[in-house]
Each structure stands twice: as C-alpha cells, then as structure tokens.
C-alpha cells in the first residue's frame, strides 16, 4: 500500500530522517519556490534549472536511501492532473484554415513551442511532487506540522491537518472494508462504479465518528486548541546542512544561467 510505504519510510531511521524537520521543510519550500518562480517559457535557462534541481533531488533521495525507481514512479501520480494543463498549452485553436485538424471554421493544431512548453509544465509538476515526496518520505506529518507551527502557520489549519492525518487512515480502512464487502457479495470490482454509494456511506459514518470525537474531546477538557507535533532539536549539523543546501540551490540557479549564456533571471 502506498500509504504504508510512505508512513514506514517517514518513521524510519535513515540519514534524512535525522535532520531537523524545520530544515527539511525550509529546503523543500525554497526549492518549490525556485521551481514556481522559473520562467514559463521553455528556454534553456528554465530547462537547465529544472534539470539541475531534478539531479540534486535524485542525489538527496539516494543519500536518504529512498529507492529512486519508486520515487520516480510514484511521483507520476501528478500526470493525470497536470496533463490537461499541459495539453491546453500545447494545443491552439485558431479561426480559419491553417495546418492542423479542421473542425468547421476552426483549426486545431500545435502552438508554436507548444510541445516544449507542455513538457516544461509536466517537468515542473513532476519535480515539485518529487520534492514533496522526499519530504513526506523522510519526515512524519506531526514533525512537519511542528515545523510549520514554528513558522507561524495558522494553528487552525495545522490542527485540521493533524485531525485529517489521524482519521484519514481510519477512513481509508473503512473504505477498504466497504469495497471488500461489496466485492465479496458480487458487487462491482472497480471502485469508481460503486464510488457514489460508498462515499455516501463513508460520509454518514464520518459524521457519526465526528460526533463521537467531539464528545471524546469534551470529556478530556478540550479548550479549543489541540497540541501540535513534538519537540524539535536544531543541532550544529543542521546549521551546516542549511548552509550547504542554500549553497547548492544558489549554485543551480546561477549555473543554469551561465551554461546557457543567459541572464539567469
């Protein structure tokens, strides 16, 4: 199961698991920011920068003992979601007759640089998911929430995440049991064919459980706040790691500009 793989890895004892969560969250956010701020045009700088980040990510995953094949495959989960955006960028519909597929007065064809732009969109999404996966594969969610709490992310949001994390597993288990019960009695095998009824059942059960959790909270003196995460311990090694990570990210940023002979913007 994907979720068990993620959970076991996050609670493991690898090299990256020992880093302070604030460091890992900070590096991940900085990397995602660099990807997001990159040019949307498929120029050499953007491609090199993305390639550089992908290389660094692979090296970090290797250092942390994360199987790169699994990482690569599981990060493909983003493709169905980003595929539409990429397709929309690659294809253009023009009025009149031009090269392409004619639909009445309209012509559907490839936009100039469309394929390159679409590949860049997919690449950026893919690497972003890879960065996030490396973070969650090496850091338990309570630790990530602690790190975000220290960064003054609103408590309400973090508490909601904490409860969702706790009960997501329960909900998934219940969903799995419902699906199995349907299959054992000859119901549709494909989850999407019985999805509506199953979701409705899960929703009703979740409402019931929500009520019971509320009672449990009240009985133990809930006063409007839930504790978030755990104690964090920033060490000298983490300071050194921070400097190295910042250096690597700046180097990737600048090197891409230098190699392509561009401005590095």
């Amino acid at each position: 199961m994907h979720r068990e793989w993620i959970d076991r890895s996050a609670h493991g004892d690898g090299a990256l698991q020992r880093w302070d969560p604030r460091l890992k969250v900070g590096i991940s956010l900085a990397t995602l920011l660099i990807i997001a701020l990159g040019s949307r045009d498929p120029d050499a700088v953007s491609v090199l920068r993305l390639g550089g980040i992908a290389l660094v990510l692979s090296a970090v995953a290797g250092y942390g003992g994360i199987p790169w094949k699994s990482l690569l495959l599981r990060s493909l989960v983003v493709l169905p979601f980003v595929g539409f955006v990429a397709a929309a960028r690659a294809i253009q519909i023009v009025h009149g007759s031009a090269g392409g597929l004619h639909l009445g007065e309209w012509t559907v064809g490839l936009a100039p640089d469309g394929i390159e732009a679409a590949l860049l969109i997919i690449g950026r999404a893919w690497v972003s998911v890879g960065v996030t996966l490396v973070l969650v594969l090496t850091t338990p969610l309570p630790a990530i929430l602690s790190a975000l709490d220290r960064c003054h992310v609103p408590r309400g949001f973090l508490e909601t995440c904490s409860l969702v994390y706790r009960y997501l597993w329960v909900l998934l288990d219940e969903g799995g049991r419902l699906l199995l019960a349907r299959r054992l009695r000859g119901g549709p095998v494909a989850p999407w064919r019985s999805g509506g009824a199953m979701l409705a059942t899960l929703f009703v059960r979740s409402l019931d459980r929500g009520h019971r959790i509320e009672v449990a909270l009240r009985l133990r003196g809930y006063q409007g706040t839930l504790p978030i995460g755990r104690d964090l311990n920033w060490t000298r090694s983490d300071s050194a790691r921070l400097l190295i990570a910042a250096g690597v990210l700046v180097a990737v940023w600048l090197a891409a500009g230098l190699v392509s002979g561009g401005t590095g913007t």
Binding site: P140, L141, P142, S162, L163, Y165, R166, Y167, V170, R209, R212, I213, V215, A216, L217, R220, G221, Y222, Q223, L226, P227, R230
Partner: peptide
C-alpha cells in the same frame, strides 16, 4: 469509548495521553 479510534484523536500515543492532564 467502544471504539478506541474515537478516543485516540492525536497522531501519537504520548501526545494523546498528555492531552487531558494538560487541559486540566
């Protein structure tokens, strides 16, 4: 509670056990 999943609402056991005493 009948179902321990209703009782244990925090991500780790230690945090959950400490929840009541802290609120007290």
């Amino acid at each position: 509670f009948q179902d321990p999943d209703d009782q244990l609402f925090l991500p780790t056991v230690g945090a959950d056990v400490a929840f009541g005493p802290r609120n007290a």
